[in-house]
């Protein structure tokens, strides 16, 4: 067994929270520059320039890219030959998030109760998803995701005999109805299959991929969405979405769940392998 102490894990999560919130990843920046080249709306171009300028200031001054530093989603892939020492893995992750959000002057947006809305000011608990994988490594991915875009997401339980067109229509309609409120140009995660709980997780995990639609279906959907004319910040234009990622999973003979997880252009994901 390979031993990894909890302190190492907490320190890594801390550093990833700081990086994710202040350094826009190069793939998103590249996609924004590409969108700027193709944008025909004058206002749309101005907004894309402001977004790129914002990323520059944030990186240089270590300021949060967005005031909504999000819920802290932590995706853990832990090798089955790893033994975590000196305490609890969950506590180490939470300690790292708490420390990172404090050190980086990041906004704490996690409420402890959905109805009383009490905000303990720690951004805890972290939203942790853990997977056990072969090997002796530990992969930690931090995604900080704002509430405005998350609110525009949707799930629908289709019939197993539903057509691809019906699924396409649902995905495009989700963006059409709410996309303008989610800080376009968007990054769209689609989860197809699994169960009522798994489809949204597939959609969320598809957001972790490097930006760029690859399959024929992804490209078709992205083209349809970019023909909606929503544009940067919903003020009209070509750049409604930068990319669409689709992830499929096995499901029940009676089911065909489809989840659309909407992400804003301030897409903040950082990973490390220990």
């Amino acid at each position: 067994m390979r031993q990894i102490p909890t302190k190492k894990i907490a320190d890594t999560v801390n550093a990833l929270c700081l990086q994710a919130n202040t350094e826009l990843t190069s793939d998103v920046e590249k996609a924004l520059k590409q969108a700027l080249k193709q944008e025909t709306s004058k206002t749309g171009r101005e907004i894309l320039q402001q977004i790129l300028e914002n990323a520059k200031i944030a990186r240089k001054e270590k300021l949060p890219i967005c005031q909504d530093c999000g819920l802290a989603f932590i995706f853990i892939e832990i090798g089955q030959e790893v033994k975590v020492t000196d305490g609890s893995l969950t506590k180490a992750i939470n300690d790292g998030v708490k420390q990172g959000y404090k050190q980086g002057y990041l906004r704490k947006s996690t409420t402890s109760d959905p109805l009383t809305r009490e905000n303990p000011g720690t951004n805890l608990p972290a939203m942790v998803h853990t997977e056990i994988v072969p090997g002796n490594k530990l992969k930690i991915t931090v995604m900080t995701k704002g509430g405005g875009a998350e609110n525009c997401s949707a799930i629908k339980m289709f019939k197993p005999t539903s057509s691809k067109n019906e699924i396409d229509d649902f995905i495009v309609a989700t963006v059409k109805n709410n996309g303008a409120n989610a800080c376009p140009p968007l990054i769209i995660g689609v989860g197809i299959g699994g169960s009522f709980d798994q489809a949204p997780l597939l959609a969320k995990k598809s957001l972790l991929r490097k930006v760029g639609s690859s399959s024929k279906w992804e490209k078709e959907l992205l083209n349809k969405i970019n023909r909606l004319g929503i544009g940067p910040m919903g003020l009209g234009g070509k750049a409604t979405a930068l990319t669409l990622h689709l992830k499929k999973g096995p499901c029940h003979i009676s089911s065909l769940p489809v989840a659309v997880n909407i992400e804003c252009h301030a897409h903040r994901v950082k990973s490390t392998i220990i």
């Binding site: 402001q50 977004i51 200031i57 300021l63 890219i65 967005c66 405005g148 409120n181």
Partner: peptide
């Protein structure tokens, strides 16, 4: 930021600023 119903806004004006350009706006 985002769409609003003009009926809600009667008697006022609604402005938008770019969402996610928070560091820039702080300047």
């Amino acid at each position: 930021k985002g769409k609003r119903d003009p009926k809600v806004m009667a008697g006022s004006v609604y402005l938008v600023v770019p969402g996610g350009a928070a560091a820039l706006l702080s300047k």
